[in-house]
Amino acid sequence: MPKCSFLLSQVSVLFFLSTHKPRRKRKVNEIQKMGSFMSSAYATPEESGSESNVIAVHSKDRFDEQFQAHKNSNKALVIDFTATWCGPCRMIGPIFNSLSTKFSQAIFVKVDVDELPEVSREWQVQAMPTFVIVKDGKEVTRIVGAKKDELERKIQMFSS
């Protein structure tokens, strides 16, 4: 079973430091100034719109159909391996949807790893979310985790 790649380290540290001993307030402020690793993963209001060009596949045949369609085009294929129980997946979902409208020159596909375990195994997905970018039928890059900035940068790099 793939593992969810959700880290609570800074959130936990902030909670602990803010609820224990007032003299640690300086440390809380220092951590808050550094920014949170989660800050780039949250969707901004304009990113959480409902418009999307993401194709949700619910069968191996449908996935194979989308993959073949991609191979016959010169577009990049961006695959989001996700799970309904995965917090970071739900967090970055609206961002993935907005990227699908921003980068119309790429094909965006969403695969639920619990619904299509054979596709997940075929692509060697071990953590969620995992984003795989495919160009000309070959994997060109992989992003593991809800890394919004890296995902957007790589999509831009391979979709042009």
Results as ranks from 00 to 15, higher is better:
2 P>E: 12
2 P>S: 07
4 C>A: 06
7 L>H: 14
7 L>P: 07
7 L>E: 15
8 L>R: 15
13 V>T: 15
22 P>N: 14
23 R>K: 14
29 N>K: 13
30 E>C: 04
30 E>A: 15
33 K>E: 15
42 Y>E: 11
47 E>K: 10
47 E>Q: 14
50 S>I: 08
50 S>V: 08
52 S>Q: 10
52 S>K: 09
55 I>L: 10
56 A>S: 07
58 H>Q: 11
58 H>T: 13
60 K>F: 13
60 K>C: 06
61 D>T: 14
62 R>I: 08
64 D>L: 05
71 K>A: 09
74 N>I: 01
76 A>I: 05
79 I>V: 06
80 D>E: 03
81 F>T: 02
85 W>V: 04
87 G>K: 08
93 G>C: 10
95 I>D: 11
95 I>W: 09
97 N>L: 03
98 S>F: 02
99 L>R: 04
99 L>G: 01
101 T>K: 05
102 K>G: 03
104 S>P: 00
104 S>W: 04
105 Q>Y: 09
106 A>R: 06
106 A>W: 01
106 A>C: 03
113 V>E: 10
114 D>T: 07
115 E>S: 11
115 E>T: 12
122 E>L: 07
129 P>T: 09
130 T>H: 02
140 V>G: 00
140 V>C: 01
143 I>R: 02
149 D>A: 05
150 E>Q: 05
152 E>P: 04
154 K>C: 01
154 K>F: 06
155 I>R: 01
155 I>V: 02
157 M>A: 08
158 F>S: 01
158 F>A: 03
159 S>D: 00
159 S>H: 00
